[in-house]
């Protein structure tokens, strides 16, 4: 099998494309969230070594960037339902596969970037909480601002998937 045959016969199949999109929606935001929660955890450990009583406030900031991974998972799950991987009952056209692949991209790309950037804001917030625990609400708010874009990406990806034109699917 040459490359051309691989592309047309295997990669450019409806289910492959949709699954590729879903996989990216899990991989990239999950990767970003893991990275961000990881370096936030390091910052929290640093603060804890000084004053363990701030753990509650620091923990909220620590897990804020975890949500992108969850959003990615939600998108992937909706693709699984749409493609019939879960539940069955659908079969896609090639355009449908490509459509779902594209629908996953906002979540996949924005999810990764926003998780990492949110993590950096959260680290700054954790360091601030170490000095001014009473201002933790402000730190949480400015960290949550970053997430707005992950939420918008999630909304767009989800709406794309839910409102997929019926012509792109055919009952199996």
């Amino acid at each position: 099998m040459n490359i051309w045959e691989f592309v047309t016969n295997i990669l450019f199949q409806p289910a492959s494309l949709a699954v590729l999109g879903a996989a990216l929606a899990v991989i990239l935001p999950g990767w970003g969230s893991a990275k961000a929660v990881g370096f936030c955890g390091e910052a929290v450990a640093g603060v804890m070594s000084e004053d363990p009583s701030k753990f509650g406030k620091a923990l909220v900031l620590n897990i804020l960037p975890a949500t992108q991974g969850i959003y990615g998972f939600v998108v992937a799950f909706m693709v699984m339902i749409k493609t019939g991987i879960i539940g069955g009952g659908y079969s896609l056209t090639l355009n449908g596969g490509l459509y779902l692949f594209a629908a996953c991209l906002p979540m996949a790309v924005v999810g990764y970037i926003s998780a990492v950037k949110q993590g950096k804001t959260a680290v700054a917030g954790i360091n601030m909480v170490a000095k001014h625990p009473e201002a933790s609400g402000k730190a949480v708010t400015s960290t949550a601002l970053v997430e707005t874009y992950a939420i918008l990406a999630l909304l767009v990806s989800v709406l794309f998937i839910l409102f997929m034109p019926a012509a792109l699917t055919a009952a199996a």
């Binding site: 969850i70 998972f73 939600v74 909706m78 707005t148 939420i151 918008l152 999630l154 909304l155 989800v158």
Partner: peptide, 14 residues
């Protein structure tokens, strides 16, 4: 306020 939908979906889908 569209985040209400996004967060609502996240918790109900999980």
């Amino acid at each position: 306020y569209s985040r209400i939908l996004a967060l609502g979906l996240a918790s109900s889908i999980i």
